[in-house]
Design a binder for these strands. Structure first.
Lengths: 133, 133
DNA sequence: GTTCGTGCAAATCTTTTGCAGTTTC
DNA sequence: GAAACTGCAAAAGATTTGCACGAAC
């Protein structure tokens, strides 16, 4: 928990119970939850929690590159505490989003001298191993 | 125009003026428009056009893999008539989405035997050449 | 003539905004 | 105490749904 206190302080963000809970939840859960999933989970422990706080906090965390945003699925943003470069696979049967750790040395090299690349998102869609059976 | 009539017939979709206009527009415009942009553009020629029809048609076209969906930007879906494999770059300054034609032979190979990959989307975000000046 | 598509209105769902009160530092 | 954060209510924006009418085949 102290780890998250330090993280927030390092970024000059105020340390609030809500932010600590959001960070703790995102770091633990590996399912790339939506804002609403985070809200539902944390609402149980803190009934006065509001969705505005969820959105505000996630925004702040994203601006400071503490978390990543995934736009892989339709109409609902997903959040990821893992900011190391990795990609995502969305199963169209069960809806799970799986981390993909392969990396491609080609792309960024070939793009050199063109645009300034700040983020690379590899999104794969299809049917996952478990749903293929 | 006859090209699109054939395209729809090939997929057992009924040929309606609305669908032809949507296809014509998407094939011409290379800016990966949102449903709303398509609606605004076509509304001028056909004032009775409804957004429901836009959404219905785009859905059908996507189901038949006649067009692609991009989830690169927050909260609004974008559509692409170019279904050949290619990737996308979003400039955070001007908002333009640029086609990226590099291809990476690594990724799909390394994923073989795992999940069934049906779509590969490479999303790059940063600052485009023009906005870097 | 049957099936499929269109367009309207209303509903739903996600995210944003304004603001008053509270907490953090 | 000043600046930042929270939470409520309302607004905004995107997409979906139910349904009656009309067009395509």
């Amino acid at each position: 928990m102290d780890e998250f206190v330090q993280l927030l302080k390092k970024h000059d963000l105020k340390v609030t119970p809500q932010r600590l809970e959001i960070l703790k939840y995102l770091a633990k859960i590996k399912t790339h939850p939506t804002a609403n999933m985070i809200y539902s989970a944390l609402k149980k422990r803190n009934p006065s929690l509001s969705k505005t706080t969820i959105y505000n906090s996630l925004d702040k965390l994203y601006q400071h590159k503490i978390i990543h945003l995934l736009t892989i699925s339709t109409s609902e943003m997903r959040y990821d505490f893992n900011v190391k470069p990795h990609h995502h696979f969305l199963c169209r049967i069960c809806g799970t989003i799986i981390d993909i750790d392969v990396d491609c040395p080609y792309l960024e090299k070939m793009l050199k001298g063109q645009h300034k690349i700040e983020e690379v998102h590899g999104y794969f869609k299809g049917v996952c191993k478990d749903c293929l059976i």
